[in-house]
Computed example of a mutant assay.
Amino acid sequence: MTETAIEEMSFEQAMAELERVVGQLERGDVALEDSIKLYERGAALKKRCEAKLKEAEEKVAAITLDADGQPTGTKPVDSL
């Protein structure tokens, strides 16, 4: 089975994989060398999730509506 490249993962895929990695690390039943690899993968997955959230935030900011329900252009979004 081939693993999906992190940069090709959707937010949901990256989050699910990150949860799996964290679970393995929390159990503590992984050899030290494997733990280091898992930690590195987890860091890359976290970065992917953050990037996808930023993309979503930018899209939401670009679709803000005025009182009449018409798009008004871009406005910053405080947080999602």
Rank of each mutant, 00 (worst) to 15 (best):
T74Y: 15
E26M: 13
K59A: 09
T72N: 03
K59Q: 06
A56Y: 05
E26F: 07
T74V: 15
L80F: 09
R20Q: 10
L80I: 08
L18T: 01
M15R: 14
M9N: 12
Y39A: 15
R48F: 05
E19I: 04
T74I: 12
G69L: 05
K46S: 12
K75P: 00
M15W: 09
E17H: 10
A44K: 13
A16K: 15
K47M: 10
T2G: 03
E12V: 02
D66R: 06
Q70W: 02
E57V: 06
Q24E: 14
F11C: 09
K75N: 01
R48E: 13
K75C: 01
C49S: 13
A14D: 08
G69V: 05
E8V: 04
A67W: 02
Q24G: 07
T2C: 01
E50M: 11
D34Y: 05
A5D: 14
E33H: 11
I6A: 03
D68E: 13
Q70T: 12
S10Y: 06
A62M: 06
A16T: 12
L38Y: 02
L53I: 10
E17W: 02
V60D: 03
T2W: 01
I6W: 10
Q13C: 08
R41I: 06
E33Q: 14
L80V: 02
R48M: 06
K75D: 01
L80K: 00
D78M: 06
A16D: 12
E40G: 00
E40M: 12
E40Q: 11
E58K: 10
L65I: 02
I36K: 11
V60C: 02
P76V: 04
R27E: 15
D66N: 14
R41C: 08
E17Y: 07
Q70L: 11
E12T: 06
I63A: 07
I36M: 11
E3Q: 15
D68Y: 10
E8K: 14
V77H: 00
E26N: 15
A56V: 10
K47V: 07
